[in-house]
Design a protein around this nucleic acid. Sequence first.
DNA 1: GTCTATAAACAGATAGAC
DNA 2: GTCTATCTGTTTATAGAC
Lengths: 210, 210
Amino acid sequence: MTKHPTRRDLLDAALRLFARDGYDATSTRAIAAEAETNISSIAYHFGGKEGLRLACADAVAQVIGQVARALPAGPAALDRLAARRILRRLVRRIVTFLTVTPAASGIVGFLLRELAQPDSPVLDRLYDTLVAPRHAALCRLWAAATGAAPDSEDTRLAVFALIGQVAYFRLAAPIVQRRMGWDGYARREARAISRRLIVNLDAMLAAADG
Amino acid sequence: MTKHPTRRDLLDAALRLFARDGYDATSTRAIAAEAETNISSIAYHFGGKEGLRLACADAVAQVIGQVARALPAGPAALDRLAARRILRRLVRRIVTFLTVTPAASGIVGFLLRELAQPDSPVLDRLYDTLVAPRHAALCRLWAAATGAAPDSEDTRLAVFALIGQVAYFRLAAPIVQRRMGWDGYARREARAISRRLIVNLDAMLAAADG
DNA sequence: GTCTATAAACAGATAGAC
DNA sequence: GTCTATCTGTTTATAGAC
């Protein structure tokens, strides 16, 4: 055995299996086998299956944070055109990440499964450190791009709708790919999705101009 | 005990629990308890846990079929305005169903969990009887409303994007409601979501007019 | 740090009384 | 049809050798 089973291997394996099959459907035996180590190493490194789940949540939050780093953090004033440019870049960036990045399937699959579960023990952590600040930043960007109030109900809903149409392509990937006749997501498919979502974004922005 | 435990009770309980916690995380004991009957009645009525899952899939397909019944089945020619009217009605109808119908949470939750699982044994059935024909009908409607080709790649993607932004509000309901400061979805919330999604739909349609 | 072996709880399925 | 009781396999966690 030339390769040492490590903490990192377990984390990668767990993220992949949690995303594909769900937390409960994934046994620690399967994770250990995928990581090519033994079961008890999970308890050693993470304290147990639940600890591994929380570690996955932290890893996911970190990666998503990187992808969304194009978002301006502060409430700096942006003119309309600059804000719209950033929004378009973000949509393209997120679609590319969701489709062609190899680890994206696991990361987003894990995230969406946890978010769909109202009483998930990792939801609080993910919401406070990831969802709330990023969504607020997107709302400020949307407000700058459209002239709407950043805290208005409609602004927040518009941002959720924007996120929703992007996220759906990863969430419902099996049926999307089947219906499109695609074997998976690669560069060409990412471009086709990106193009349509940018059209939609521009249409929503144009509608805001009255 | 005035109420007889029945097949229907088991189906309702299973749908609710499968949607909330996922298939694997739901034990037959929990289903039986929720239905106020005993475990072995699952085997009696459905042959086992997997049979109950398939029965849930059939029930879901039937209800969704009812909600989408406003969709024209045939390839009858529609003028632009009529097609757009139907599209708007559908969006409102689906949002209302997703938010205020009590059973919607269970039905959609179950559906989305199954669709997210590439190798789910019920995916094939749901895809053939529900997803593919409804998506195709929506594509024809979209084509009639915009002048695009009903089978073009972009038309199919546009329809998925449209579905995605609606579905997201049910899928990510926990974070949406937390961020919006909502206690749940009721009439007022459904109207707010509907209003934004109709704005987006009209914007997308307007963009198609060049 | 990594392993084997095992404990204690839990799963789904089923036999058989009524 | 509905129930109790139980079988058989699997789960997570852990004790302890190395």
